[in-house]
């Protein structure tokens, strides 16, 4: 009786639903990327060119999404806005992710005083309402997207740090971590090469839903006049500008709003798909 040497791979066989969610999300996000990259070719009009003769026109064959109070084509502005909003979502997530993951890994792995310091820092940041903290930092740095990214990085990392730290606390007691120590691997190698890849799945999934929040935050900040400055086309700004006309010219707010929702939907589908793929729910 010998051990069968060729057992079939026990790979996770994703059902259609599981794979389908991820594929649909990636497809949708891909479509936005294409829009962003090809904006000059795809958009029918200049997004900031005003046309006094075509103000506040409803959707028509000439202007499928209508025009705003300056006669600017909404469709073109939504397409150009993709560039800004994708950037907000991506940059607004990447920096908190990197900072939080690194600090969380170190805190969880070393424990003790290092952990205590980082986690008290997390507590302090969490003690302030998120938006208030964001607004104060942006107010100090001055309005603009760069300030928004910095504020995001300073405030947003805490969730990632907590997630990764909790994972590390469990993983560092796994036998393969002990094995790595007994094999003479350096701490850096154990932390970042052996433990982090196993701890990161949850954070990657969270990053996807976080992208949605960041996107909405970016829009909210711009809406408050602290983010993207007019006349640049950004969905949040567009919603803010259209607010005055919402009863008479609904298309000014509706279409950029729909764009926000759709992009958010794409991210959350990818997040769900990844969660299934990594087995985070199991």
């Amino acid at each position: 009786m010998s051990e069968p040497l060729a057992t079939p791979a026990l790979g996770r066989k994703g059902g259609f639903r599981r794979r389908g969610t991820l594929a649909a999300g990636v497809f949708l996000l891909g479509a936005f990327v294409v829009l962003a990259l090809g904006a000059p070719l795809i958009a029918p009009y200049d997004p900031i060119a005003q046309d006094a003769t075509a103000r506040l026109q409803g959707p028509s064959w000439l202007h499928p999404f209508g025009t705003d109070n300056f006669g600017r084509d909404i469709l073109s502005r939504v397409i150009w806005g993709t560039r800004i909003d994708l950037k907000i979502a991506v940059i607004g997530v990447i920096f908190p992710f990197l900072i939080g993951t690194t600090l969380g890994t170190v805190a969880g792995f070393f424990g003790g005083i290092v952990d205590a310091i980082f986690m008290r820092l997390v507590d302090i940041i969490l003690a302030f309402p998120f938006l208030v903290l964001m607004l104060s930092i942006i107010a100090i740095l001055g309005p603009g997207l760069a300030s928004f990214y910095i504020a995001m990085a300073l405030v947003g990392w805490v969730s990632y740090a907590r997630l990764i730290r909790a994972q590390m606390l469990v993983l560092k007691n796994h036998d393969y971590a002990v094995a790595a120590v007994s094999l003479g691997f350096s701490r850096m190698r154990i932390m970042f090469r052996h433990l982090l890849p196993n701890a990161a799945a949850g954070s990657v999934v969270f990053a996807m839903s976080d992208a949605v929040l960041v996107l909405l935050n970016g829009s909210a900040i711009s809406y408050l006049g602290l983010g993207v400055q007019p006349p640049v086309a950004e969905w949040g700004v567009m919603v803010a500008e259209g607010q005055a006309f919402v009863t008479t010219a609904w298309w000014i707010t509706l279409f950029p709003g729909l764009a926000i929702v759709t992009l958010a939907f794409a991210f959350s589908m990818i997040g769900d798909g990844l969660a299934d793929l990594f087995g985070v729910h199991e």
């Binding site: 094995a179 790595a180 094999l183 350096s186 196993n198």
Partner: peptide
């Protein structure tokens, strides 16, 4: 060197057997 009780828990699930061995050899 040590050999552990739970064979699944003792191996890094992200590494192939070849990569795992190569790393040990390289570090050592």
């Amino acid at each position: 060197a040590m050999v552990f009780q739970d064979p699944f828990n003792a191996l890094n699930p992200h590494l192939t057997v070849g990569k795992m061995l190569a790393e040990v050899l390289r570090v050592q």
